[in-house]
Computed example of a mutant assay.
Amino acid sequence: MREDYQPNELVGRDEEIQKYQAALQPVINGEQPNNIFLYGKTGVGKTAVTRYLLSHLAEDASQYEDLELHLTFLNCDGLTSSYQIATRLVNEFRDETAQISSTGYPRATVYEMLWKELDAIGGTNLIVLDEVDHVEDDSILYQLPRARANNKVSGAKIGIIGISNDFSFRDDLSPKVKSSLCEQEIHFPAYDAGDLQKILEQRRDVAFRDGVLNDAVIRLCAAYGAKDAGDARQSIDLLMKAGDLAREEEAKTITENHVETGRHDLERGRIEEGIRGLTQHGHLVLYSLLTLHLQDGTPVRSRDIRPRYTSFAQRAGRDPLVPRRMRDHLSELVMLGLVSVTERNEGRRGGTYREYSLAMNVELVLSALDEVVDEVGIHESIHSLVTDDIFRDS
């Protein structure tokens, strides 16, 4: 039930696996690997499918004497620049005694170190950059795929697999990076309830004793997962939480009541953890959207959120961020599942734009925003919801 568990077979992703296998075929052929870009929401199987296929690819490659394959996985969460990624990759390829500092070197020097390490390794190198949308500049996404063509390396073939939860990330890439990184694109849609039920049944057969879990519990967990953006991880976590609650009660079976209680506990914990990790401006953007939601002002465009955000920032004694940085905070809220986004296309006259809505329980969000509400003040839209239990100092 844990996130690092790798099942022997993946269900619900046959079409994506087929496309992925075709994109990886040049590796087995001994050719220059494709650069592959995967995108889709959190929990739809991008990373799981990648690890599953690459493990099988490594097994297949080991059967060929003249094929030397090296796999490198790097999660970009917490890495905001190409410099940081390049430094981390150099250290991935070096012994612990030869690690370099993450600061202090000119960028060109770090890249030279990286090319030297890759040439020393040789063979075919697939570098997986998970959550690549965290990186604010795309230099590394151009440098790595073009290293061989630009004569930076001669003994290594390099392929990039970029994985992103942010659908808009690709749109913000420079044209030269798009042409390099996005040679092969695979979109992972949300799982439906049927797919999630098959995934849960697969985990049930391994994780639970016979007879403690009925089909109704599986269906309920799958239905909630499908409702929550088709996130397999959420469905699996919900089933595990229901099992933990049943074990704590020393119950003989897991019931739908355990699922309901578990869902409430997980949702509260997820909201509190997500909001706790936001910056103060992230809190202000979320508070602005919440108050608009309570006044039936959503879905709403970012430009219409901005006046209220600006007012709240000034009340909190903070300088409002420029529109682009405010939109970055909205994107982070979307990624955390606190906010949903809808793409709109009004044709030539209206153009394409995004509208945002609150995607979580209002009371839970409010309880996690108590500090920013104390600082900014109680907006008229939340007066009826404010209680001594939520805001002790009100």
Rank of each mutant, 00 (worst) to 15 (best):
P33N: 04
N34I: 01
N34A: 09
I36M: 06
I36G: 09
F37A: 13
G40A: 07
K41Q: 01
K41S: 04
T42H: 11
T42F: 10
G43M: 07
V44H: 07
V44N: 10
G45M: 03
K46D: 10
Y52N: 11
Y52M: 09
A58H: 02
E59P: 00
E59W: 00
D60Q: 11
A61D: 01
A61I: 01
S62G: 06
S62Q: 09
Q63T: 12
Q63E: 11
Y64R: 08
Y64P: 05
E65V: 15
E65S: 15
D66Q: 02
E68D: 15
E68A: 08
L69D: 01
L69N: 05
H70A: 04
L71R: 07
T72K: 04
F73A: 04
F73D: 11
F73K: 10
N75I: 02
N75T: 05
C76E: 03
C76S: 08
C76P: 02
D77E: 14
L79E: 09
T80N: 03
T80E: 02
A86F: 02
A86Q: 01
T87M: 12
L89I: 08
E92I: 03
E92V: 04
F93W: 05
D95M: 09
D95Q: 09
E96L: 07
T97A: 11
T97L: 12
A98F: 12
Q99K: 14
I100Y: 14
I100P: 07
S102A: 14
T103R: 15
Y105C: 10
Y105T: 08
